[in-house]
Each structure stands twice: as C-alpha cells, then as structure tokens.
Simulated scan of single mutants.
Amino acid sequence: MASLLPGPEDGSTMARHVLFDRLGGPEVLTLHTVDAGDPGPGEVRIRVDAIGLNRAEVMFREGVYFEQPAFPARLGYEAAGVVEAVGEDVAHLAVGDPIAVVPSFSLTRYGTYGDHVIVPAHAVLPRPAHVDPVRAAAVWMAYVTAYGPLFETGEVRPGDHVLISAAAGSVGLAAIQVARHIGAIPIATTRGAAKRDRLLEAGAAGVIVTGEEDLPARVREITGGEGVRLAFDPIAGPGVETIAQAIAPGGHLVVYGALDPRPTPLPNAHSYPQVTSRTYTMHSITSDPERLRRAVSFVDAGLALGSFSPVIDRTFDLTEIADAHRYLAEGGHFGKVVVTVDH
C-alpha cells in the first residue's frame, strides 16, 4: 500500500485534496497538500484509486446546486479505493478492504476529490473482486439513480416502454441497462444525431433525436400508438410538456435533474393524458439504510450477471481535475468521466 506524504514535525500525515475558495468555472479547482487527518467515530479514511465525476459536482462548484459550499470547499460523491484507517464504531470494514463510495453524504461535510480522504462509513461498500477501481467509481450514482423509478417503485413492468431523456450520460446509459435487465423497452433521446448509433449499440430499442424529430410522434410510432409507461428526465424546464405528450394514460413522469434552469411547468390535465408527475433524487434511497441495502443488492446482482457494465468515456489524472470538469461541462461525453489517482 502506498504511504501518505510525510508530514511536518508534529507527525501528522499529508494528502492531496482538490479544493476551491470561490464559485466559478473549472479554473477555481486547485490541488492542495493538506493534513490527511484521522477518521472519527463512524468514519473511514480511504486511499483513493479512482473518482467518478458527476454533474451535481459541476453545479455545486458553480453555486447552483441545492446546497451551497462553505469555503474552502471540497468536492466529490464517488470513489473507489482501499480502506486505510477506520474510526470507532466501524465494524463492517477493515484496513485493506477494497471498497467503493456511494453518494450518501453532504458535499458540505465530505468529498472524494483527493488521494487520501475521509468519508462516513455508511457510504462505503465492499467492491466486488471482478470490478476494477475505474468501473467501481462509475457505478453508484448512475445505477442507484436509475434503480429507484425503474424498479423499486414497481411502476415499470416487463414489456413496458420507458423514455430516457439525455440518454448519453452515465445515468441515461445505466437506465438503458436497468430497463433491459427488468424486461422493459428503453427509448433514448439525444439532442443531435452523432450519438444515435452508439445509443442503439448500448441497448436502446429506439433513439429520438430531439433537435430533428417530433418526440411525441416518434414515441407513438415506436410504441404502436400506446406511449411510454414512464419518462425519466434529467432536463426539466418547459420541455416536460412535450415529454408528457409521449406518456401513456396512467403513466409516470419522473424528473431527476435540472439541466434546464427555466421554470418547469406541471403537465396540464386538459392538454395531456392523465399522468403522475414527480421529482426524484437518489438521496431518498441512499439516506435510508433499508432502501440502500435493497438497491445495493439489485446493482451487485446486475454487475455479477454482466447486465450492468458502466460505460467509461474518458479518464483524467487527479492533477488534471480542472480539465476533467471542463470536459464534463461541455456535454460531449458518452458515459462516465473518471479521474484516476497516481500513488
């Protein structure tokens, strides 16, 4: 196991953490040498091998997330690595365990952007031997987010059509795999035609290019006029009215993001079929131990069977964190952006 950087005369150990001291673009992210610290009760320190990047972290850095940073601020919901030290009251983990971190904490208290970081023990899961660190860092945000509406609630059944907006992102691609895993039929959307073939290769039964095609008409064509049972949308904004027209009567609209900052209207019962409309966040699952246990079992089973395999678009080194955030924000990626850590 790689050792921590030697500390000053007081004997403390040092680590590299990504911090930012003001809101702004990727350039505000800087790498600092800091005291690694020791885990407190209910915490563990991990040696980080890979970090999964998420749109939520871009929003947190920009100051448009549902939480606001307190400076100097840290970042990072996901990581994979090895347990390095355990605090009091931690019985399910031991030094040397290969692990992954599930997003189940506040970015105002913890962050995974670093080479040795402290996180709450309840957010640390054993990493299966067949899952390497890069793939393990790309699993939990995406698959738990997709798991909730597509499986846990029981609203989607085998044979149902599911509309997945912005499907080329890590959550969208995970949702395609989850839908296939449970026997549903995923229909993907993308703004431009460049990603159409890759989405079909990824398992989409149909792809709608929203910049060129009439979404409700194409959904009716693909579903034989029925519409979709569930629409899973990270964009929000006025576009939900168009999506609602593609949902079958009695179906469901689930909005799990806010890529469009404009107000999101409630679908009007006089204009569209009867649909249930709601917002959703994966934290509703990761903050509930029993729901998280079920989600982990579901995702682990999919990984073991080969039904779930996170798509990695590109990796960056920890020293390139600003470039990695810039690339993620540009929106041209297909799948997960992962940062690796050189020890």
Rank of each mutant, 00 (worst) to 15 (best):
M1R: 12
M1E: 10
S3G: 13
P6I: 02
G7T: 09
G7H: 06
P8N: 11
S12F: 00
H17S: 08
V18C: 13
L19H: 10
F20Q: 10
F20H: 03
D21M: 00
G25P: 00
P26D: 12
L29K: 06
L29H: 08
H32F: 08
G37L: 05
D38L: 13
P39C: 12
P41S: 13
G52Y: 07
L53G: 09
A56N: 04
E57A: 10
R61F: 06
E62F: 00
E62K: 15
V64L: 03
Q68W: 00
P72G: 11
A85D: 13
V86L: 05
V86G: 03
H92S: 14
I99W: 07
A100N: 11
S104C: 15
F105Q: 06
L107D: 09
Y110L: 01
Y113A: 02
Y113N: 06
G114L: 04
D115E: 12
H116C: 12
H116I: 00
A121W: 08
A121T: 10
V124I: 05
R127Y: 11
A129P: 00
A129I: 01
A129F: 00
V134G: 08
A137K: 01
V139P: 05
W140R: 12
A142W: 11
T145K: 05
T145D: 08
A146Y: 05
A146V: 07
Y147G: 03
P149G: 04
L150H: 07
F151L: 10
G159M: 06
G159S: 09
H161I: 04
A168H: 13
A168T: 14
A168K: 06
V171P: 05
V178I: 13
V178Q: 01
A179L: 05
A179E: 00
H181I: 00
I182S: 02
A184K: 03
A188Q: 06
A188M: 07
T190W: 01
T190I: 11
G192K: 14
A193S: 15
D197I: 08
A204M: 13
A205F: 10
G206W: 11
G206D: 15
V209Q: 07
G211L: 07
L215S: 09
E221H: 08
G227R: 03
V228F: 02
F232E: 07
D233L: 07
D233T: 06
I235Q: 00
G237Q: 11
T242I: 13
Q245C: 04
A246T: 01
A246V: 01
P249M: 08
P249K: 09
P249H: 04
V254Q: 12
V254A: 14
Y256E: 11
Y256W: 14
Y256D: 05
G257F: 04
R262D: 12
N268A: 15
Y272R: 14
P273R: 14
V275R: 04
V275L: 15
S277L: 03
S277H: 13
T279D: 08
E290Y: 03
R291Q: 12
R291Y: 02
R294S: 09
V296D: 04
F298E: 05
A301N: 13
F308H: 06
R314E: 11
E320D: 15
D323V: 01
L328Q: 14
A329D: 15
G332Y: 11
H333M: 12
H333Y: 02
V339P: 00
V339G: 05
H343P: 15
